[in-house]
Design a binder for these strands. Structure first.
Lengths: 230, 230
DNA sequence: CTACAGTATCTGGTACGCCATAATACGATT
DNA sequence: AATCGTATTATGGCGTACCAGATACTGTAG
């Protein structure tokens, strides 16, 4: 029997361990600001809030630590990682390099399916902006880049980008709210798609780089404006 | 009293938690092949071998899982991650993009210190090859790239590269043993340094890309040659 | 009002126990 | 003898209790 067939009749099981559920909860809590940068994450408090044991909480904290979302002060314990401006810029820079690479690969493949998938995500972004649904903007933007990477089978790079992106997630939600971003963001992304459509690898690379460079610039402005107030 | 002075008399403490020690041990055991890909990592056995409690072992396993060195089969438990050839190629590709980026930045900075530091590492590599000390070759190669990234303050990218590199570590130790690598490897790296010295960003970028591309090609050859035998 | 001692808090780490599941071995039935 | 059902074992997932060491807080005595 073929493997595919065997998979087809396989019974779907929840399969999520308690740990994974807790991990998702805490990560989410951090990225949408329920826990603020610098906040202490007291193990036993988390146990109570999540309704799980310390064993689970500790594993979750270790995991988030290796994701860079949580920092561990010696003899003090875990806190939500602070994002300094330089680190944010570095993350944007890396994303630029990797997304540019993926965009170039997409362009070189010249596949109509890629273009169609990207345009669908892009339309989703435009709609979300129109509806003022910022959460949906983020989701659709993620999906845009997700297709960009997975269409050319670059799941490892996508993993890296994802890993880095959660660390700047609250920045992202600030940059997309910027006035001009609702017009320029989709415009830059459509330039990426256009270059891919005409098979212009170099153009796609540069367009992708430009897009994150713009995001980086906005983030820097936002971050340095917030710093003195905070 | 100034902070610096206070630091100066501060007593140096191990500061490494047991968990970190265990983490290093297990990671090392995996990367130099004491645990082979596909091996099961039985928690209670590891407890005995490491002399630590299950809690610590579990946290270590979670950490390694998020590093990609360990995979978790549902209802089966953790095993040493298998490295498939496609994933390895992706990792080399990402390294190319990031190391190329760093090399370009180094070239654009035109700093003699960078060139000096790189040449020192390069000399170390040449010596290690001459002495047939392959472990030293790996260490010095790492140090070469470490300076490449840190000299232009790209510690995040360096972290990413490092994270990915451990996953292909046993491949690295195979590629550097290849006959021609002992000549071509340092040659390609010296091309990077040359380009940096003359401030040729584009050249440095391409030279860095070429170097990992060559490594990737060797790795692919090695890996596909080993597959049928295994 | 300050210095010091005691106390509460919290993490790092350990030990142990319970449960669920998967695999295997074993035994009974046809 | 083949098959089916059951008991056992191995193992991970999870919880609880406990201790040691570091730190932060607090109240009291001088």
């Amino acid at each position: 029997m073929s493997g595919a067939l065997k998979d087809a009749i396989r019974v779907e099981r929840p399969a999520k361990t308690l740990r994974e559920l807790a991990l998702d909860k805490v990560r989410e809590a951090i990225v949408n600001g329920y826990f603020r940068p610098g906040d202490r994450l007291v193990e036993r408090d988390l146990c109570a809030q999540l309704g799980v044991s310390r064993t689970v909480v500790r594993e979750v904290l270790r995991h988030l630590e290796s994701e860079g979302l949580v920092a561990n002060l010696p003899n003090k314990g875990p806190i939500v990682a602070q994002l300094d401006i330089d680190e944010a810029k570095q993350i944007y820079e890396i994303r630029g390099a990797l997304e540019g690479m993926a965009a170039r690969l997409c362009a070189e493949r010249r596949s109509p399916e890629i273009v169609a998938a990207l345009e669908e995500s892009l339309a989703g972004i435009r709609n979300s902006y129109r509806d003022n649904d910022m959460a949906a903007v983020l989701t659709n933007t993620s999906s845009f880049y997700h297709t960009l990477f997975t269409m050319v089978d670059r799941n490892v790079a996508w993993g890296v980008v994802n890993l880095l992106t959660v660390r700047i997630n609250h920045l992202r939600s600030m940059t997309i709210k910027t006035e001009r971003r609702s017009i320029e963001g989709p415009l830059q992304m459509s330039k990426i798609v256009d270059a891919i459509r005409r098979g212009d690898g170099e153009g796609a690379y540069r367009a992708a780089m430009d897009h994150v460079a713009a995001a980086s610039a906005i983030a820097e402005a936002v971050l340095s404006a917030k710093k003195p107030a905070d």
